Amino acid sequence: MGEVSATEPERSEARAGTGEPVIATRGLTKRYRGGQLAVDGLDLTVPAGSVFGFLGPNGSGKTTTIRMLMGLIEPTSGTARVLGQPMPRATRAVLPHVGALIEGPALYGFLSGRDNLIRYDSADPAADPRTRRARVASALDRVGLTAAAGKKAKAYSLGMKQRLGLAAALLQPRRLLVLDEPTNGLDPQGMREIRALVRELASDGTTVFLSSHLLDEIEQVCTHVAVMAQGRLITQGPVAELSAGARGRLVVTTPDPAEAARVLKEQGVGDVVVTDDRVTGEPPDRDLAEVNAAMVTAGVRVRGFTVERASLEDAFVALTGEGFDVAG
């Protein structure tokens, strides 16, 4: 069963200093009984105000990390600080400032979507009961569930349940929003809506920590990213810098693709791929003008010659040597 973060008093105690990371871990490790190493020495830094993508294939340690950050499980070793406070020791001070959707929402199936949110809001001792229904209505509207607010949660689709979980996390203003696979079960339109909501929250100053196994999702919405594989951190930093660190693809458009491919290989271009009139490859360590000139000299009719910007997928493959889910 998933959790949406609980709320407690002591709100004034969780105040991160100016410029201090919203999340910071050092050597964070979780080893389960039986010896399974789920997270191995994680050093993570999440800047304030970022939309931070936590990227990795299923089983890479993302959810275990989130559960440690939220104080739901104890680390085996290492430290974690959230909003400047040590976790799990400062759970009571930190969680009121955090909205979380972890492993899907925990819902009462016999209650309507609206009544589920009322139940969540009632559990917050700092929530004003006089404005409860207005808060619930606003949260439902933000995630597009107003029309289905009266329907019982057990009749909701998986995507609708995800939206309701997000609404629960948004009942109060949050300094940090932690989302574990938030677009799970959503159709393409629903994905776009959730991404738009994440951007809106970020523009309002909320830091968003978004776990996903979808490269496309991270690249579209995130400002920063950390890449996990087999419990270890592979790299982290701004998305633009990570993509820039990977080499782009040389793209040649020509009615003579076979001859172009031959010349490109002779010029040191690697991983040459021919698709109709388009020939792509990894740029060589030499002046590309010379490569172009060599094709012209060989009689190749060059209609287009460019280097496409590297994507986050290119960066991931360069870092790990593995393929990855692009869009699910």
Rank of each mutant, 00 (worst) to 15 (best):
M1G: 12
E8D: 14
R15K: 13
T25R: 05
T29A: 07
V39L: 05
L42D: 00
P47A: 05
S50G: 12
F52K: 02
M70S: 03
I73Q: 11
P75A: 02
R81T: 07
V82S: 06
L83Y: 01
L83M: 11
P86R: 02
M87V: 10
H97L: 04
A100G: 05
A106D: 13
Y108W: 08
F110C: 05
G113A: 08
D115E: 15
N116H: 06
S122T: 13
R133E: 10
A134G: 12
K154D: 14
G159Q: 12
A169I: 08
P173Q: 03
R174Q: 07
L179R: 08
G185T: 10
Q189Y: 09
R192A: 07
R192M: 02
A196V: 13
R199W: 02
R199F: 01
E200H: 13
S203M: 12
S203C: 08
S203Y: 04
T206H: 13
H213T: 09
Q220G: 07
Q230T: 11
S243E: 12
V252R: 00
A261L: 01
D271Q: 05
D271P: 00
V274H: 14
D276N: 09
R278C: 06
T280L: 02
P284R: 11
A293E: 04
T297Y: 05
T306Y: 07
T306H: 11
R309I: 03
L312C: 14
E322N: 11
